[in-house]
Design a protein around this nucleic acid. Structure first.
Lengths: 346, 346
DNA sequence: TGTTAGCACTCTAAACACACGAGTGCTAAA
DNA sequence: TTTAGCACTCGTGTGTTTAGAGTGCTAACA
């Protein structure tokens, strides 16, 4: 649906007034801004209300944008400007600082974005179903404990500490290595199964039985490596936004990560463009109906991707946040490629 | 300072009424509960006010406990009961699930405690200044990238991914191993210095120069291993507590972790008992003056320790939360010892 | 036919007065 | 030393009023 130019101007003006101030705006104020008489604007606004682009809290209040109104604004009317160079440099520094592991870079990015936007953020680690185990290393730590390190073809690293019942001798190491080479190396993480593990374990001889905890741990690591994990950061930021009627409901929603994960991965699959924006009632859960979600995908290796996004009230500054999120995911993708990319010829 | 028995009874009754309800209580209600006449109670309460144990919001309101009042209650009047067995089992399961790395167990515990108490939690990873580097492993991942794993004597594991400019050949590995053995193995993490790193690097021959990124990364890992890190979880829980006048100030305080870290590590050093409780104005920062902090230490290895704690409004159920925190730190300590302890003869 | 001025109407928010009740401090009696 | 009684304080809740912002509708105008 397309609106007349005048309606578009009015809608844009309403949105751009409401976003920074949080106050409804009436015909009189718009009249000064746009040059049409207040009566004309009243007529137009009344129609915009009927069409569902604007709302009013009560008969004699000014108008505010509806979810549909924001949507039209974001799709057709909004001007975004790229980030300032200084900003970019600052962000890049924050992203580079400290993190030296793909997961940590990603997690850290969530915190950075939360600070930048003063909103909550959601970050999912990449799930690469086609990834396979490329390397497994056993590093003895004390006599009976060892660190297990697993690398996947897509560049994910997982480690854990594992204790076994007897001293880790060469025999144990050998047995473990043989089993790893035979069953785990090159195996797709998505295809690791409980049954396979059981089978391997049940085939162990009595003197080899001590490696069982190592195999269980390795299996767990493989599973983890194939799963996407969602983090939420900066929930606390939301309290500074006065828009939320009952924030605690939203908080609870954010706390139990599963539904949010589903929402994010559903969007990943639904829309294969880089960004997706869900405004107010467009979110699939009623807990999110007063919120907007700006999601953006980053690439990880050749096949995997993850999502970074912002959660805030519907009344957020889309024109600022969208480039913010975009830049950040971009930067994360670049950092990942630069540090951990397969491509060795740069 | 010690109070008369009757004053103690009154103080306890005020606290125990205020904590669950959040409502001030007057002489009349207490009269019914305690059996003394309302006038007697009024006199006593008036004195308790003068002594600083009680407060009133305005002349004709009931009394509420002051920080000092809570303190007296916690120290002298409170009854705590240990956790139910079912609760314990549930918590243990939650703590055991997933985490297979010291850091992850600790971090996870913060989340578990946040859910359990419906408060924010703070967790610090152990800082063991006396820890030394016990093992360094270089695991090639792709031709030019490798995973670096570092273990310390106290059981901390750190890893990162590192890219160098040339292919990781045997020469590189050798050079790296020699330098590691000579300068890093057995070195105390607290004594790693920028100068030492510079020195090692400047002594590199041209053909060995490619290991520089590996050494820098290793240095970073060592530094990290010696530093305590603070996490905050469950900030969002705080909004469900109606006590806070301006929560955003507190949220901001919790977001910038440094001050909170300082507070926690200061307490670690000030008081060598297992728990410390800071109530309202006893906290050193004005952002925390409406909050209480219940901290408890867990042991990590022989020399290191970390802290787990709860942050909530002063009006929290001390008699429940104190055993909660205590049990949780206990459990974390036990889990760490069980899985990663040096002690191999159990 | 589209635009505008004017007017009556609606609704909210703020200001005010008022009564109620919870709670106090003080005094005097038990 | 404790208690009963009483006058006083103060916050909360309620009802009323008023000002103002904004609307919809109608009629006039270009």
């Amino acid at each position: 649906m397309s609106l007349s130019q005048r309606k578009e101007k009015i809608l844009a003006a309403v949105v751009e007034h409401y976003i920074p101030t949080g106050e409804p705006i009436g015909s009189k104020a718009l009249c000064e801004e746009l040059g049409f008489s207040s009566a004309t604007i009243r007529n137009e606004m009344s129609e915009l209300c009927e069409l569902g682009f604007l709302e009013q809290k009560h008969t004699s209040s000014g108008r505010i944008p509806s979810s549909k109104g924001y949507r039209y604004y974001v799709d057709n009317l909004m001007n975004t400007s790229p980030l300032e160079d200084i900003e970019c440099a600052k962000l890049e520094a924050m992203l580079r600082s400290g993190a030296k592991t793909p997961e940590k870079i990603i997690e850290n990015a969530g915190g950075v974005l939360a600070r930048l936007t003063n909103c909550a953020t959601v970050i999912t680690t990449p799930a690469d179903k086609s990834a396979s185990i490329s390397k497994v290393e056993l590093i003895p730590a004390t006599a009976k404990t060892a660190v297990l390190v697993l690398l996947t073809s897509s560049g994910i690293i997982k480690n854990c500490v594992c204790r076994i019942d007897i001293d880790i001798n060469d025999n144990i190491k050998d047995t473990f290595k043989k089993i790893v080479d035979k069953y785990f190396i090159k195996a797709r993480v998505a295809e690791l199964s409980e049954e396979m593990l059981e089978e391997i374990i049940s085939a162990l001889g009595t003197e080899d039985y001590a490696v069982k905890p190592l195999l269980s741990a390795l299996y767990e690591l493989g599973r983890e490596a194939g799963e996407s994990k969602a983090f939420v950061r900066g929930e606390g930021n939301l309290i500074s936004h006065s828009d939320y009627a009952n924030l605690s409901e939203l908080m609870e929603f954010l706390q139990q990560r599963e539904q949010l994960s589903r929402l994010v991965s559903f969007e990943e699959n639904r829309d294969n463009s880089r960004m997706s924006i869900l405004i107010g009632s467009e979110n699939y859960f009623h807990e999110m109906e007063d919120s907007s979600l700006i999601l953006s995908r980053y690439a990880f290796g050749d096949n995997a991707m993850g999502t970074i996004g912002v959660i805030g009230p519907t009344r957020i500054d889309y024109s600022r946040l969208i480039p913010d999120v975009e830049y950040l995911t971009d930067m994360v993708g670049r950092l990942l490629a630069e540090n951990f990319g397969d491509n060795d010829n740069n």
